[in-house]
Write a protein that binds this DNA or RNA. Structure first.
Lengths: 190, 190, 190, 190
DNA sequence: CGTTAAGCGAGACGGTACGTCCTGTCTTAAC
DNA sequence: GTTAAGACAGGACGTACCGTCTCGCTTAACG
């Protein structure tokens, strides 16, 4: 019992997300419209709205696709080293074109609570989990203080990276990461 | 060699900035258009565009006006206490309607390098100066480590507040501030 | 090779033209803005600009719509009588609210060569054709001179009506038409 | 009781009128703003509004200045020849840049009854007087029919020239003038 | 010969309309 | 029946011009 007409082309979603990413890479955050994405992907606007409620929702999926291939960090045994490695990876991402997508989402989320929640749940929480795991491993291994407030410490370490991406008030490179780790270390070490 | 003709009407400027602030407080940052500001201030649209290049530029000035009356923090003698007081004030501002204006500016700055630079120079740098002063005083008084990297430490302490305002992933209250200070203190104290 | 997607909504076009005519009749030609037309027709401004390059272009179409229902003049057998009848009809139109639309178009066309050409082709030429036909019939019937320069004679007869509409220097009524016909008749009759 | 202060600088008016004429010559009718005239004349806007109520009023004065040096037509003794000469002069003016000024005024007058009246009184009536004089001379000399309706005949002869300037539907040259005169002559001659 | 008030340039002002752009929904024709 | 193309209502944007107003410079008549 076959059906007639073309079927949902699953390639379409991928094409849309790729176009979104390419356009944001090329034009920077906030400079991309739904119309542009649609025509760049060779897709009708309705096809986008069928699956996503807003441009930002598309961006968040494109971002997730970007991270899909992310491999977990190897653990070296040294908590300080593992933290530094993770932070360097975050800094590198924030400095790369992928940072533009994140900046776009943060910007859009300021006026869209639904998106904000989605962004927190699907992206922010996800990234924090990795950091928390490293911290907990360090505590378990006796290298970090047992009484650390994990959420607070994650903010101490990572918020500077976020802020430098968003405001650009200070550089965001490996030296910066190292300085943060060194500066914060006395507060972390057992 | 003065110039002839009428000059910038400072009264008017104030009216525009006040209207901008009032509207943003009432409607939220994304819901305010230049037309609304103009008609609320009883002003022609061109008068706004004569003096500011964009809505965001008006907002940044309105924000500055908001902080113009800011009084300097009293110093208690205790570096830890002074830092905590300042951070609590920042957290309070970030949680107030004024925070909406800041969030709007951060969002808009993601796509507007000129605005971003203006925001860094006129707002961010200004606020960081206060924190740096408190830290230097603490170092001079022997209560804080002499080898602190001031810029890094400011980020450690304040970036979490910024990020909680922008992402809303964690609360932003006095308890949070206290937890941050306590957690970071071992890294700061002499 | 057809095209896909929705097509020009002719219903909508009619609504826009009717609104244009109604507003010009009510307010006079110069007092009508595109925004007014759009909101009176319950239409987005872009919908107007999608199909017409300027307000004047809309007016010219509204004018054409006005004349679409025009019935051809009955021929009485008397060339002089037929000419007079036609001229009276023109004078009546020029004196009616429809005259406002024509005056607006003539005015606008002074600064817009494209509109001028459109007006000549679609309105002026069309009206002149009727006059020319009457004249040729008169010549064929032996009532008018065989060597008439049709274009010149049409100007002789109708230009006074146009000019009185545009300048208002002299009345534009049936008596005027009759006087013109009587005065010019010796130059026309066989 | 005299007054103090500088007096009205009559040079200014001339400069304004010349600038107006130059700009209309250069840009065509309908393309000139008061701001442009003011800055081209090196004059404040208020100086223009001090003496003229509208842009069109300035144009009408500039036009009059243009005609100030006009010399009366010599009379040849032949009514037909005199009429033809006058009409050729009118056609030449209408075809020259001066025609742009007239077109601007006709256009503006369609929406401004006060200007329309001023234009009729100060320009149209003035020009018609010359034609009427030639016709009356021809009647007096027995070359033209005694029962001519002067106003109607002036329209018959000159309205085609006006209309060709305003609509551009037919050429406006000496051959045209000759054709009009020849075609109309049987209606005029005694 | 200094005072004073008008003429003047420059241009800021409130306001209106413009024509462009984008969003999110709806419609049509092709495959 | 899904799709690409794109029309649609709505509304913000930034520009241009209008006619009024204000500022400070210059200048001529009065005292």
């Amino acid at each position: 019992m076959g059906r007639t007409g073309p079927h949902r082309d699953l390639n379409l979603q991928a094409r849309i997300l790729t176009s979104t990413r390419d356009l944001i890479f090329a034009e920077g955050p906030r400079a991309v419209s739904i119309n542009q994405i649609a025509s760049h992907a060779g897709v009708g606007k309705q096809t986008i709205y069928r699956w996503w409620p807003s441009k930002a929702s598309v961006v968040i999926d494109a971002l997730e696709q970007q991270f899909a291939s992310e491999s977990p960090f190897p653990t070296s045994g040294s908590a300080k080293e593992d933290i530094r490695t993770q932070m360097r990876a975050v800094a590198a991402t924030f400095s790369s074109p992928t940072g533009s997508m994140i900046r776009e989402l943060v910007a859009e989320a300021q006026g869209d609570p639904v998106l904000a929640e989605e962004f927190r749940t699907r992206f922010v929480a996800e990234r924090r989990r990795g950091g928390a795991a490293a911290l907990r491993a360090g505590i378990a291994g006796g290298q970090l203080r047992a009484d650390l407030d994990i959420e607070i410490v994650i903010d101490l370490l990572y918020a500077p990276l976020w802020l430098r991406m968003l405001l650009g008030h200070q550089p965001l490179d490996e030296a910066t990461v190292d300085a943060i780790v060194e500066q914060a270390w006395p507060a972390l070490k057992a």
